[in-house]
Design a protein around this nucleic acid. Sequence first.
DNA 1: TATTTGCCTACTATGTCAATAGGTAAATAA
DNA 2: TTATTTACCTATTGACATAGTAGGCAAATA
Lengths: 131, 131
Amino acid sequence: MISTKGRYALRVMIDLSEQESGVFIPLKDIAERQEISKKYLEIIVKDLVKAKLLKGSSGKGGGYMLCRKPEEYSVGEILEASEGSLATVACLAAGVEECPRAGKCKTLPLWRELDKLTHDFFFSKKLSDCI
Amino acid sequence: MISTKGRYALRVMIDLSEQESGVFIPLKDIAERQEISKKYLEIIVKDLVKAKLLKGSSGKGGGYMLCRKPEEYSVGEILEASEGSLATVACLAAGVEECPRAGKCKTLPLWRELDKLTHDFFFSKKLSDCI
DNA sequence: TATTTGCCTACTATGTCAATAGGTAAATAA
DNA sequence: TTATTTACCTATTGACATAGTAGGCAAATA
């Protein structure tokens, strides 16, 4: 289940794609257009900046700006930056030591298949496909 | 993210598929084979019984039994019975009033597409495919 | 009647989600 | 220089879900 963090992150990125490129857009404006609390968005854009998907500038005339063109972002990397992991089951999340039952687990192949399906979906989809 | 409830439910159903059909299998045996706490499994099989995927019988010689042949169960109905909903985003969960932004939401088509993708995956996959 | 099994209610510890609150730092314009 | 605007930082909170545990009652069989 994709949480509000991931969904809002995607909406922020889409919102920025629709604004004039090359200028910093204040978070306040994005929050108003998207009808999302600015305070909460601060948390979300922080992750996006950390992942180098956005850059921010303080002070008057500041705000946030895309680092690349919309067609150069995959939806997957945006969601991964905000959600942390897109794994569909805990056993397949990155940085988790392998389950001792993995060898005999009858369900693992199913989860791997699902994981690949959603991963391919998210990473083939571009931000520009959402405008 | 599929939780332990759904994952364990599937393992119980697979386990039963591998036992002699037509006889009741005690939950204690399933719990030992699957290395899952019997107490926790009680909660899980209760949902499966309620959804008519399993039938239970009390007393000596009792236990749980499949209601149909393994090829007649989809993985989707098993997961839905234990997880409650397989919706990938809150906005698409059953019984939720439509978001007021639905008409102009740029992300909704993406979530619908994802939801269809996973739904089709889960419901085309049969229990017999997991043995 | 004893034993085995399912079935029922209640409880709990931990963590995540979805925010809110209240500041500091940086940049610009008057 | 000063006021204003903006990002950026840490901390806190209430509600809920997750992943179980505990202890018993009811039913069926040997």
